[in-house]
Design a protein around this nucleic acid. Structure first.
Lengths: 264, 264
DNA sequence: CAGTGGTCTAGACCACGGG
DNA sequence: CCGTGGTCTAGACCACTGG
């Protein structure tokens, strides 16, 4: 059985207009900016990441439309995650990195990014001690209201902000974590070097969410949806050691989440 | 909820404005549509899903802005997945369903949706037999160029199109699948009733992608990014039985992907 | 300083849905 | 039929980046 190739009725059959050409013009003229987007998208296929894309003004005159229309076309390409726009600088070809999460690989942002061919960076925003809330105690298998480290970090890839994470770790088990982190902002590395702990994934849950304003500011984006990963990591002995919430820009990273093969 | 309320500042703050007040106006007036979006977002928190949201025209007069500006505010809310707009009908509050994928649960779209509190529907688009490409043979553990069923389906939730899937299954193992599916569009149910096969997840990979135009048409959306799930299911004996590619609307479903707990 | 994108106006016509 | 959202124009001013 085939797909039937449903006959689509002609669109607005203009008043006795000339046959096909007229129909084509009518159809197209009401979606001019989408046509432009299609045309530009196909041209962009062969353009290297980071290249400059013509300006709104240039496109307006090339396609013979007003600037708002040319702008709409570029915004459409931005929604499709194909380009990246910066006020005062221009529009540029964008490429996303494939960030693969798998139970088989260690839970390090930097490691995962390097694997994807990116140059990772970490910036420590804050380290603080506070009492854990109920959910955090449950996830880390701690007594109620235990003291925990709260670590706030921003991650970059190829110089661009890509993610924001808040991690919560048990305080007693990790004395001097604040000092350890100021010299070595990679949490996985700090845990290994300072405490001999090799972290592994325990739980991971990912979804798509519109970030709160505060976090959107850290990510230097508007509040369009981003990845939200909620994770718990453990030591090689099975003890939960870190609970994290990570927001990741969907226009920079294409998260690809792989499920472990079940042993049959 | 009444309209107006909020005293809206006078618009064009003419030259020689008053000092600090003027500064405030300048700051705000350059992000008027975002201010509107913030205000509307907070109002929308308490609005039930499906409710009508004021029209562009109404908002323009309420906030004292032009229609394009009011429109920009509503589009911002749409990007944040808070509202849903239909030409000729209006703007409505949107709610996403939490679609949870976990190795522990059976790989049935309908089942998963019911679990999330939605009313699922399936529409069969096509069933066909063809030769498998190399990758499909590998995933299904079949000899090269084996015959396979290719099944195309569209899924709805609460009457709205939510997903589009193409499944590939071995032909020899499933005689008469086309007939079985015309009466029972749920693949999991058909496999169980007709062949006594209980499918389970084997592999699952999820990411975010801009769908091809053909699939965007099936989903009745523009080409904004959607979820793309690539999955392989197996029988209870471990034999791969289905390989699928599923596009799911991110504005309808919030996919939440859970990793199995590793046995320590 | 020129060029870029970001915002905004005040209109216009169209396609669509429902009464 | 009217009201909705979808598209478009031809301008305007602003904020930001870079040389």
């Amino acid at each position: 059985m085939t797909v039937t190739a449903r006959q689509v009725p002609i669109h607005p059959p203009g008043p006795s207009g000339s046959p096909s050409a007229a129909n084509l013009l009518v159809m197209t003229s009401s979606h001019r900016y989408l046509e432009m987007a299609e045309e530009l998208e196909s041209e962009l296929q062969h353009v290297p990441v980071g290249s400059r894309v013509p300006s709104e003004h240039a496109l307006a005159s090339r396609f013979g439309v007003s600037r708002p229309t040319a702008r709409a076309a570029l915004q459409e390409l931005e929604r499709r995650l194909l380009v990246h726009r910066v006020q005062g600088r221009g529009t540029f070809r964008r490429g996303r990195l494939d960030y693969v999460i798998s139970p088989a690989w260690p839970p390090s942002f930097s490691e995962t990014l390097r694997r994807a061919g990116g140059v990772p960076g970490v910036r420590l925003i804050s380290v603080a001690v506070r009492r854990a809330v109920e959910q955090e105690c449950r996830q880390l298998a701690l007594p109620a209201a235990s003291a925990v480290w709260s670590v706030e970090r921003v991650f970059t890839v190829n110089g661009e902000v890509a993610a924001y994470a808040t991690s919560v770790l048990p305080y007693r088990a990790l004395p001097g974590l604040d000092v350890a982190l100021t010299g070595e902002p990679s949490l996985a590395t700090a845990l290994r070097r300072r405490y001999g702990i090799a972290v592994q994934r325990l739980r991971y849950r990912i979804s798509l969410a519109s970030p709160p304003q505060v976090i959107a500011d850290h990510l230097t984006v508007d509040r369009t949806p981003t990845w939200l990963a909620e994770s718990v990591n453990r030591t090689s002995h099975g003890t939960p050691i870190e609970s994290a919430r990570t927001y990741m820009r969907a226009d920079v990273l294409n998260i690809s989440f792989e499920m472990e093969e079940r042993t049959p």
